[in-house]
């Protein structure tokens, strides 16, 4: 199965690392989009077909929490799986993410293998054909 992913992080470095890591671990991707905050991410989600959102939380303009809330309010977006990739280590906060509909949380720093496992848990078969 090939799918499109949206990477949301205010750090260009992190966006680049995640995109490279997705290619490194042979995940079958159709398109990779990137946004520096939740506001830009929402615009992309309105314009493009996105199958998975990988988002940071702590971002300027619009945080990851606001992005997730706005996605949940949208009939068109609320079914798109969201994985939070952040420095968050509080199980209390991670439980809150899950209550908001977040499918998985991956803590920074992460290994390529852990990223692949997390996406596989959420998306199922992700192998390149």
């Amino acid at each position: 199965m090939s799918f499109s992913v949206l990477i949301v992080d205010d750090s260009e470095t992190v966006r680049s690392i995640i995109a490279k890591t997705l290619r490194l671990v042979n995940i079958s991707l159709a398109e990779t989009y990137a946004a520096e905050n939740g506001e830009v991410a929402l615009r992309i989600l309105q314009e493009k077909r996105v199958d998975l959102v990988l988002t940071d939380i702590n971002m300027p303009v619009m945080t990851g929490v606001e992005l997730i809330q706005r996605m949940q309010e949208s009939e068109a977006m609320k079914g798109i799986p969201v994985v939070v990739i952040s420095t968050e280590g509080s199980s209390t906060r991670i439980d809150e993410f899950q209550a908001m509909g977040v499918r998985a949380h991956l803590r920074k720093p992460f290994t390529p293998e852990r990223l692949r496992e997390t996406i596989e848990e959420v998306m199922g078969d992700i192998n390149e054909q």
Binding site: N58, M59, S86, T87, G89, S90, S91, K108
Partner: peptide, 29 residues
């Protein structure tokens, strides 16, 4: 950008190391 990200990740992990995984912290940019 790389230095900001390094400190961001370091800070999040230090706070969990010190306080455990229950307390909630909010980090600035």
């Amino acid at each position: 950008d790389a230095l900001r990200e390094l400190l961001n990740v370091t800070c999040g992990n230090i706070l969990t190391e010190m306080a455990g995984d229950k307390p909630v912290f909010n980090l600035s940019l």
